[in-house]
Design a protein around this nucleic acid. Structure first.
Lengths: 254, 254
DNA sequence: TTTGACATTGACGTTACGTCAAGGTGTATA
DNA sequence: TATACACCTTGACGTAACGTCAATGTCAAA
């Protein structure tokens, strides 16, 4: 059972260059060298190559693989579980992507109203803006980078289901806000419901809710045109109304 | 709405180096350069960057992305559907990986019999060997490289479901073969069932079935110790028995 | 005035190989 | 026996998509 470099490469489905490379970096040395200087591989090397390729398929770096297959006290189970977790995360992200692509296709085929898609874009934009408002520039120093990154990861790592929840939540918020505007009282039942929904919506991005931060954001909604524009497109004066509702909800006013 | 390179990078979640690189390769040029030589980006660039990142997430190369976002007559729908197909494939592969990892973990925790895992290894090995027998060396010239590669891709690209089917199929084959051995007649009902199952199993790897090739493989099962070893571990003489059954099934004998 | 954050270009490093180039080896065939 | 041809070797440069210095300039705040 002796294999030339090419035979082994064909069996395993890799290039012979790959095998030379693995030899070079000490990941898989041939069993020996024959009189002509050719690499000779045996059954052991085939097994080991399969192991290597297994881990490679899992997305590990060759360095990582070397550590794994070389270490005598290697806790394969632990590493595998860690990797499984990573794979599941990856699939979640992939599912989100697929949902997005599907949505984009559907939108461009006119199966769903284009407005929906615009809203999607708008929200995505607002997420980033909100986040930047709270954690941007000045706040970055205050809260530390980990928190910013955490929030960003939160948005990015959202599953399809989470995203759908978020979307229906923001729909409720919009509807409630409209109804509350008709009622006319930010401190009224509907106004306070809107504020509560807004808090729920916020909790998707912030780990640590505080009335102060919430109220601060509400004030920004009016001060910053990017936000007031967004809410006022629902109805004129909506940004101000929502601000007042939140200020009352958080106990900052009246 | 003017953004510095860093602001834009933070909003979009990429590094400023990335933006410089995109400028360098002409993928995303800043809106302008200010008096200090700083890059200045605007709303248009933000939108475009999000588009770029969207496609990047889908796994496209920057070159590919440039083509898409640069072409004015670009058929977005067609490209999107292609991407969707690619994504779905990717998820299939991921599912297979996850299933494999799960299996490996389960095996190492003793939740499933280790033999199952060994069988898995054995089968994978045998797939490669079978394939090499049919398409290796001498046959490679005859059948052409595309066919070899096609078969290899077939094995690698198998979905979890397909793999499960394949496995249950080989289980049936083993059971039938055992029963047929007890019956003792390769031409009998059970022997012929085994041959039929073997043909089905083969069809997972070969696109073009022919009785000649099938019979050829059956002869190899006895001639080559790698195969006879595998089948004889089911029961002594199994390889020979299977060969005879296949020869009868393909009309090459009696 | 100095500090510190931010910007610039330039250039080398990284991973996991692909792809020549220049040459030696082994064997089937004219 | 010559030669064609597939296979092997090492060496070295190329690739993608940035990361990571280095050296230097800009700008606002203390």
């Amino acid at each position: 059972m002796e294999y030339s470099i090419q035979k082994l490469s064909q069996m395993a489905g890799v290039s012979s260059r790959t095998l030379r490379y693995y030899d070079e970096i000490g990941l898989l040395k041939p069993a020996g060298i024959n009189s002509s200087g050719y690499r000779v591989y045996g059954k052991y090397e085939l097994d080991r190559l399969q192991q290597i390729l297994f881990y490679r398929e899992l997305g590990l770096s060759l360095d990582g693989i070397r550590e794994i297959v070389a270490a005598p006290d290697f806790d394969g189970n632990k590493a595998l579980k860690e990797h499984q977790a990573r794979l599941l995360e990856k699939r979640q992200r992939l599912d989100l992507l697929i949902a997005n692509v599907e949505k984009t296709i559907a939108a461009s085929e006119g199966r769903i109203a284009m407005q929906d898609n615009e809203k999607f874009e708008g929200f995505k934009q607002k997420m980033i803006d909100d986040n930047e408002k709270k954690y941007g520039q000045e706040a970055r120093a205050k809260y530390g980078d980990e928190k910013v990154d955490l929030a960003n990861r939160k948005i990015k790592g959202m599953s399809k289901e989470q995203y759908a929840e978020l979307e229906s939540l923001s729909n409720s918020l919009n509807d409630t806000l409209k109804a509350a505007l008709a009622e006319g009282d930010p401190g009224g039942e509907l106004g306070q419901k809107a504020a509560r929904l807004h808090r729920q919506w916020l909790s998707y991005f912030w780990d640590d809710y505080s009335p102060e931060a919430h109220a601060g954001l509400a004030r920004m909604y009016v001060a910053d045109e990017r936000f007031s524009e967004y809410y006022d497109q629902i109805q004129a004066g909506a940004a101000e109304f929502l601000r007042d509702a939140i200020l009352i909800y958080t106990g900052m006013k009246k």
